[in-house]
Simulated assay, not measured.
Amino acid sequence: MNGQRQAHCAVELAGESLWLLAHKAVYWPARRMMVVADIHFGKAAAFRALGVPVPRGTTTQNLQALDALLAAHACEEIVFLGDFLHARAAHAAATVAAMQAWRARHPRLRLTLVRGNHDVHAGDPASALRIRMVDEPHTVGALSFCHHPDTVAPGYVLAGHVHPVFHLRAAAGGLRLPCFLLGPSRAILPSFGAFTGGHAVRPGAGESVYVTADTAIFRIPP
């Protein structure tokens, strides 16, 4: 995979074939399941409520990004790895209305949310969204879905929380790009949200980095 630029990278984790997607999500073909971390609905609204002038439209961007995933892959369930809502401001009428309109377009899609630290403070999403709420670890087969990467779990952990980015150095400076960080017992997903920032990571022993850039994903050589 080194040097190849493609829309997804197939990896095997705990004996399961998963796709790391350029659009910052994981697809589990055998289960027709999409896995998304840290979408942080309502984060921009929360900043504006504090008087910070930030752009509008991030909820729409997030929903359009989800639609793009669903259009490209046969999907029966989305699992959100925590921090679905950023704060109580995410319960604002306009934000909730946009999410409910999106949900109405996908009535048969199962939605599962593994509660993260922001979800605890923001409260559960509106019941009309019909999201199944679970605590970490949420284990399906050989995989355990968590928010915090260090959660003790019976399966291979897929988690978020960190918002990992990788500093790709170049002669003209460098780029900070969202990335997947894969290790022997856990994988950390990049933040899916449109307004979430990132934390620079460096791979440790036995870890691999897969960087996403626009519509491409590629592995960083060891």
Rank of each mutant, 00 (worst) to 15 (best):
N2Q: 13
G3T: 06
R5A: 13
E12W: 10
A14P: 12
L20A: 11
A22W: 00
H23V: 00
K24F: 03
A25E: 07
V26F: 08
Y27E: 03
V35Q: 11
V36F: 07
F41L: 12
A45W: 05
F47Q: 14
G51Q: 03
P53T: 01
R56P: 02
T59L: 04
A65E: 03
L66V: 02
L66K: 10
L69A: 11
L70N: 10
E77H: 14
F80P: 12
F80V: 07
F80I: 10
G82S: 14
F84E: 13
H86Y: 04
H91G: 11
A92I: 08
A92E: 13
T95Y: 12
A98M: 14
A101K: 14
A104D: 13
T112V: 06
V114W: 05
V114N: 06
R115E: 02
A122D: 09
G123E: 04
M133E: 07
V134Q: 02
L143R: 14
F145K: 12
F145R: 15
H148L: 09
Y156V: 05
L158K: 13
H163N: 01
H163D: 02
P164T: 04
F166G: 09
F166Y: 15
F166N: 13
A170T: 04
A172Q: 13
G173K: 13
L175F: 04
L175V: 00
L182C: 07
S185F: 01
R186Y: 05
A187E: 01
I188V: 05
S191Y: 01
A194M: 02
G198P: 05
G198F: 07
E207I: 07
A216H: 05
A216M: 05
I217T: 01
R219Q: 06
R219P: 00
R219K: 11
